[in-house]
Design a protein around this nucleic acid. Structure first.
Lengths: 340, 340
DNA sequence: TAACGCCGAGAAACCGGTCCCTCAAGGATC
DNA sequence: GATCCTTGAGGGACCGGTTTCTCGGCGTTA
């Protein structure tokens, strides 16, 4: 054989060298106790000599399970995702599962195909911030099962769904700014594809309906710090005294540009973010925001998936909402007496 | 059959329903032109009816390739990694490969096992910031091939290695601070496991050897903003006038704590980071740092891996170094005449 | 000493695809 | 009308594991 350098050793190579059947090698590798110690030793020695590593692929195919779960995320830049991932990862590891992260990328039309692809290599899938239209998501989920959805505020998807209560989070921030005397606000949106913009906008509509003296204008934003910087001038044009921003990252960008433009926060303009990422605490001024238990959300997502992995037929469609808590910091303050 | 709801349809189910052989189904699914249009249609109809999706696992096993490559990273919090990932991801997608990200986690002793695991599910592996001892890494790489290493400044690893020139980056920063009149510096390290601390420390040792008037003290830091905040008081105790920080994220944390402590940057203390992440531009004061072509580094890493995937025997051991460029911003300034 | 049971290892089917090889049918050529 | 070539589909081996089922050999008990 010229296998010497080429392909890795297979179970057949080991069984031949140890002069036993492949079944026996399999038993030894999996620690089955029904193998004679002498033979087991011979097998282990042969395996070591050949540097044998069982093929995960073949093993998974035969076993019908991979011991792996995929998490699909649109983009990794948002630190809030990392916290969710840590929660999932820690819980999954505890149950002996591996985690693979798959980046869906910007092309929403490719998202469904991407989900299917990720799902195929694993026993289950966690979709974080899926973006496509609801009917597509709904039909995709039927093929993806077992799957769990994070941050889609549709309550009756054919999969367990966990979501931050964005609506309430925004409501808290609006309330906070109103208490500080603000009447004219601006909302800096997320990227056009972000579905989680919808509940935020619902909260805004509701607040407007409840208080006729309130005014809230929308400014298009994005997902990262540069998007926040770019939104700054338009925010100023609205002449609002307080700004709600899609998330903390965009808010930090906005703060930096406002500073360059000579706007004093919060004296002239109050700014509030969303998520309470580590950075919110380090921003200047430190960022008022709402805090979400992202880590626990990740843990819970895993638990839901774990149940489905055990009982694939338990048609779980639970919806769990995670409330947000206001975190008052220095980027919000009383509305200025005299608008700019 | 009670297969109705249970397992997904297999190629056998489709071939039975379409009354053709499994080989023919396989041909149709892979778009082979040697199939009669009528039959192909029948097969497609049957596949649609059964909602047939070929098993990636079985396909990969049979094909001997998965069309997937894994990237192993220690932790996702550092934004610099995202840029590298984007580079890899874009290039890989261009060549029709999928990318999976695997998070190694904090336990370095599990790292080798983690690499093997990630590698097993894919055709290749890119190791970003591997941390274990060099001899372990060296022997692991032999089993991991094809693999590519990013950010390990050992030039003769048994795999293509791409690394930021940390040594030169730090040298640039030291030079910059010296020009500003600083003689007494502090260096805030990365986490204890970070191997990329070594070239940074080498640069420091070299600078000290070259200039007897220079003094540089080491303060232990970490990898995220909170580590930076925690290092602040010890930094102040060194009475240094300039600080080099392991990376931008830690530097941003340090800046925030210094601000709380009433230290004026750069008037009383100059601070410099490393990596030039987006945030460096948004920090207050904006952060002097060194910029690295992380995106290009990612692209190059993919290219190296792609070559190995094509020609597994081309024993490539190339070492590529990516130079860093100084980015002067507002967090560094002239050394104070009178130290604190 | 014969019958029974248990332990441990091998043969072979199986997971779900791919693909080489074979061969039948139909059209073209002489 | 017979032969050759081409087209296209099927049979079956294969990828590298796991697992059921079978059976030989040994120790135990009557």
């Amino acid at each position: 054989m010229t296998r010497a350098k080429k392909h890795r050793a297979t179970i057949g190579d080991v069984s031949a060298l140890a002069d036993v059947s492949r079944a026996t090698v399999s038993r030894v590798m999996n620690g089955s106790p029904t193998v004679d110690a002498v033979i087991a030793d011979r097998v282990r020695k042969a395996a070591a000599e050949l540097q044998y590593r069982p093929s995960n692929l073949a093993r998974s195919l035969s076993l019908g399970r991979t011991g792996t779960v995929a998490v699909s995320v649109p983009d990794l830049r948002n630190p809030m995702l990392h916290t969710v991932l840590q929660g999932i990862s820690a819980s999954a590891a505890h149950d002996g599962y591996h985690l693979l992260v798959s980046i869906a990328g910007d092309d929403v039309s490719q998202e469904e195909r991407h989900f299917l692809d990720a799902r195929q290599r694993c026993d289950g899938l966690i979709l974080v911030n899926p973006r496509g239209p609801e009917d597509e998501l709904r039909s995709a989920l039927l093929q993806l099962s077992p799957a769990v959805v994070i941050n889609r505020d549709t309550t009756d998807l054919p999969a367990p769904t966990l979501s931050v209560n964005h609506e309430r989070g925004i409501a808290l921030l609006i309330e906070h700014l109103k208490e500080l005397g603000h009447r004219h606000l601006a909302y800096v949106t997320g990227p056009p594809t972000a579905v989680s913009d919808l509940p935020r906008k619902r909260a805004i509509a509701r607040a407007l309906a409840a208080d006729s003296r309130l005014e809230i204008q929308t400014v298009s934003g994005g997902r990262d710090v540069f998007d926040g910087r770019e939104a700054a001038e338009e925010v100023l044009r609205t002449r609002a005294t307080g700004v709600l921003v899609f998330n903390d990252l965009v808010a930090v960008g906005l703060l930096s540009k406002l500073r360059e433009l000579g706007i004093s926060v919060p004296d002239q303009l109050s700014v509030a973010g969303f998520d309470d990422i580590d950075l919110a605490h380090c921003a200047y001024p430190s960022l008022t925001t709402v805090k979400v238990a992202h880590y626990e959300l990740g843990c819970r997502a895993w638990r839901e998936l774990a149940v489905l992995l055990e009982h694939p037929d338990s048609a779980s469609e639970a919806f769990h909402s995670f409330d947000a808590d206001l975190v008052r910091r220095c980027s919000t303050g009383p509305a200025p007496e005299i608008p700019r």
